[in-house]
Every structure is written in structure tokens, then in C-alpha cells.
Amino acid sequence: MSRLEIDADVLVLGGGPAGTWAALAAAREGARVVLADKGYCGTSGPTASGGNNLWNVPPGPARERSVQARFEDGGRLSEPAWMYRVLEETHQRVDELAGAGYRFPSGDDGREVRTSLQGPEYMRRMRRRVHRAGGTILDHSPALELLTTGDAIVSGAAGLQRQNGYAPWSVRAGAVVVATGGCAFLSGSFGTNVDTGDGLLMAAEVGASFSGMEFSTAYALAPAWSGHTKGLMMQFATYYDADGRTLGDGGFSARGAAMAHLAAGRPVFARLDRARPDIRAAMRTSQPNYFLPLDKAGIDPFTQKYPVRAVLEGTVRGTGGIRVAGTDCASDVPGLFVAGDAATRELVTGGRSGGGSHNGAWAISSGTWA
């Protein structure tokens, strides 16, 4: 085994959307950047495994309405100034992504619809962009601890190279960005096998504070034999109990009734019968992984009921994380910055889950700022 030792300006821990946007932004500023991922950057994590819809609203009245609606939905616990910042940064970066060759689908009017991302293609391109910007990527290299100077300034990290006989590695850097994702430990939610809370623990060990953790035990619904938790699809669902009685009023508003039924140990069934026939093909195109296990079971989810279960997604879908102490996404520990699901998202989501859309936009913007 040979020990790998690198000096850098910026070390990014995590190779999901937040980590790759952080590495890309730093490299463009001329920094020597190292990105370390416990998996393979570009294929590891929930975004690469499926993708998500995106909170991307162009400037104008629609953006104003979206911010106000979300502010109310989150119990007025978010900060509108941050919400506007996220929307503006996300809008610019998505335009940039399109200019770099990512192909968005077109709507009926022929214009591109830039409100969802296909995870495999998105993250494949982000990995390539980090490489082309000059960043160094360490794959299969989980970090085990943050390194600090004598005056408690974070100055790098150390870990192991899983595909090199577990040889140790260390990177000394002027700044470290923790973009390791949230924590959904052993939940079985699709793509979250790597989201085990490592970055949160390492940050706590050097004294970082957390915020919004009271909103972090988030659950999502998936087919009973699957880990695919695509909330976007469930807005078209009607929920039923074992006797075929309807739970709630359907769609997102009925989700609470379905969750309560499951929490009481009673079975719940769903059917996507609120989806109009003319949009069903588009639903399959936007989130194909949701339909795959249903198709394999021989179930047409638009006409047949299927059992669902509640899957813990913790801080991946939830809100809390490492406290953001500055507009540059600095933590309250010198030298340590945070981005994506490892950071609190209460600034833009308040007391409500960020789901895929708001968390996806936060990953892009917070990664860029960090």
C-alpha cells in the first residue's frame, strides 16, 4: 500500500450534484481542487440513481408567487431573501448546463422544460465538467476524518482508498466543502446506500453546529417491494385502505392520511388515477425508474391499485443539517463549508421537506457558493 498525500486549495467531500458544482466553481476560479467520493463520482447517490424535479422558476410574477407559497407552506420559517438567491442561481446554472449540452425535453409550445433532471445523464456530465475544469477526482475514497490546525481551523481530510488495498489518503487544503449528502442509514431508499451521515459526523467532531434537525425524520412513499420514492408521481395518486375506501382527498393533500394509516400498521394502496391520459407518457419519460418495478410486477399503476410503504429518507428528503453561517455557505467552524443535503435547507424550505425540487435547487446553488 502506498499512502496518497495531496496539497490543494479546495477539498470537496462528496461527488453528488452539490459536490460537483462546488468543485466546478472552485476550479473555474483557478483553485487546485480535489473531490473525494466514497463511491464513483457520477454514478453514486440518489440523484445519479434516478434524478429529480427541480425548483427552477424564471424571473417574474411566477417566481414571486412560488416564493410566497413556499414561505407559507414551510410555516414561515424560511428566509425569502435566500429563496430568491437560490432561484436566481439555479436558473443561471441550469441555463449553463443546457449550454454545455444537457438536453431538456420540449413542451407543447416547443420550448425546453427545465424543471427536472435525468440523474444518470446529469451526473455523467457533471463528472466530465469537473475533469475538464482541471479538478482531481478520488473515486472509492471515503473520508474518515477532518484534519485541523493547532488553532482548530479545518485544513483537509483523511480517508482510505477502497480499490487500492485500503491505502490511506490525506489532502491538505485551504478550505473543505462537506457535500456528503444527508443521512438515510439502512432505509433501503433507492440510491441512498451511500448516505450514511459520515460528513455530518465529521463536522460534529470538529465542533460544527446543526440546525433544523427537528424536521429531519422525513418519510416518502414507494411501492411496497421497491425503494423508488418519487414524490412527483404521487401528486396524481388516490390512496385506498384495504377495503377500497378512499383516504383523504387524493394527491399531495392525502399523503398525510396515507402516512397515518401506515403508521397504525394498516395497509395502504395507491393508484395514479388522477393523471390525465395525455400526460401519462410524459410521466414515464420524466421518472422512468419509478415505473420499472411496477412494470416488472405486471401492474398498470394508472388503472390498478398497488400497495405502498413508508420509507425513511431522514435528512435526504428532510430539512436539517450543518448550520449555514454565511452567504458563502460557511459553517461556524473556520475553513469548513457545507453544501447540498449535508447542510440545513431550512433557509429555503422552512419546516417542510425540500423533496426533490427544492433540495435539487439547493444542491446546485449552495454547491456553487461554497
Rank of each mutant, 00 (worst) to 15 (best):
239 Y>R: 00
367 G>E: 12
92 Q>N: 12
133 A>Q: 08
69 A>E: 15
24 L>H: 08
254 A>H: 00
235 Q>K: 06
140 H>N: 13
118 Q>C: 06
240 Y>L: 01
26 A>M: 11
267 P>D: 09
82 W>Q: 12
139 D>S: 13
16 G>S: 12
100 A>T: 02
182 G>M: 03
99 G>V: 07
162 R>L: 13
60 G>Y: 12
141 S>T: 13
260 A>M: 10
7 D>M: 14
102 Y>F: 14
256 G>C: 02
307 P>A: 10
58 P>C: 10
17 P>A: 14
207 G>Y: 12
366 S>I: 05
172 R>G: 14
363 A>M: 09
286 S>F: 03
353 S>T: 01
49 S>K: 11
5 E>T: 12
243 D>V: 09
254 A>W: 00
47 T>D: 08
368 T>Y: 15
85 R>I: 06
166 Y>V: 15
345 R>L: 11
160 L>F: 11
135 G>V: 01
180 T>Y: 08
149 T>V: 04
10 V>D: 07
43 T>D: 11
274 R>P: 01
230 K>I: 07
176 V>Y: 05
108 D>H: 15
204 A>R: 14
129 R>Y: 10
267 P>V: 10
287 Q>S: 09
146 L>D: 01
177 V>K: 13
80 P>K: 11
286 S>P: 00
332 D>K: 12
168 P>C: 11
266 R>P: 00
89 E>A: 14
18 A>N: 04
209 S>L: 15
152 A>K: 12
34 V>E: 04
246 T>L: 02
12 V>Y: 06
251 G>S: 07
293 P>D: 08
299 I>H: 05
263 A>S: 06
225 W>E: 12
197 G>Y: 04
283 M>V: 03
96 E>C: 06
144 L>Q: 14
44 S>P: 03
244 G>C: 07
56 N>A: 03
243 D>Q: 15
232 L>S: 02
244 G>S: 07
222 A>D: 01
333 V>E: 03
123 M>Y: 14
20 T>C: 15
183 C>L: 11
211 S>I: 05
189 S>E: 11
321 G>Q: 05
88 E>Q: 08
